[in-house]
Design a binder for these strands. Structure first.
Lengths: 132, 132
DNA sequence: CGGAATCCATGTCGATACTG
DNA sequence: CAGTATCGACATGGATTCCG
């Protein structure tokens, strides 16, 4: 384990901590509290700031701003300002953002299929440990 | 947006905040700092505690324990104790854990392909904002 | 070896208030 | 409308120490 340099070509897919760390970081980034919701919502079409805010139940103004800023920084969304009165700001997924949406939705589909299993696994676990 | 009940059957895949929230929670769970690394490493084969610790560069004993506990609780890994001296504890993915590994690896593959693009997007963004 | 317990620094997030 | 600024609560994570 811990192949920091390149693997010696004698194995299919090596574990490589360095690479996996980066992968983990990306997943950690979109794994924050709101990014996935924003991505999935923007899959449909572009949205304005307050549309997103209303669509994503429970998100605060602050967190929506921060989430969008991070996604913009990573190149996942575009931010289009129309300097009218009142001002109008539209967000939409970039090409890379849409490509990200694909595996994200796959993970989402997996989550949906396994929600019940996970919940019951937790129950069993918690039940088995409460007699400690 | 915000279809809490069922969608009015006139659209293919509705956004449904309630469902997406659960999805987001699952992604948030595996989106923590270490779970993905553990999952990917356990894909190869079962590992002992300290093997995992050595394989995942930078993880503390505490975080490995917590991560494994959470994954065990969700039913992703099994924990097998062999009460020898010294004690031996083996971890391996369950069936559901292996099925989770599939979309996780897909997301990982996406991350690998887009690492460079993301990095350069950040540079552009940071460069464009430093004159503010 | 495989933890559990404690302590502490930092990060994350929500609520609130203010701005152009 | 679409933010920014500030604050405090809470969660996350690392270091260290102790235990069976």
């Amino acid at each position: 384990m811990n192949v920091t340099a390149s693997a010696p070509q004698d194995e299919p897919i090596r574990h490589d901590t360095g690479t996996c760390l980066k992968v983990s970081q990306v997943i950690g980034r979109i794994g924050d509290k709101w990014s996935v919701l924003v991505i999935i919502m923007l899959c449909e079409r572009g949205y304005r700031f307050n549309e997103l805010k209303r669509g994503i139940d429970g998100i605060s103004q602050r967190m929506l701003t921060l989430t969008l800023r991070n996604m913009e920084r990573d190149g996942f969304v575009t931010r289009t300002v129309t300097p009218s009165i009142p001002p109008r700001v539209d967000y939409e997924l970039t090409e890379i953002g849409r490509s990200l949406a694909v595996p994200v939705r796959l993970l989402g589909a997996w989550a949906l299929q396994n929600l019940v299993g996970i919940a019951s696994a937790r129950e069993s676990y918690d039940a088995g440990n409460e007699d400690a």
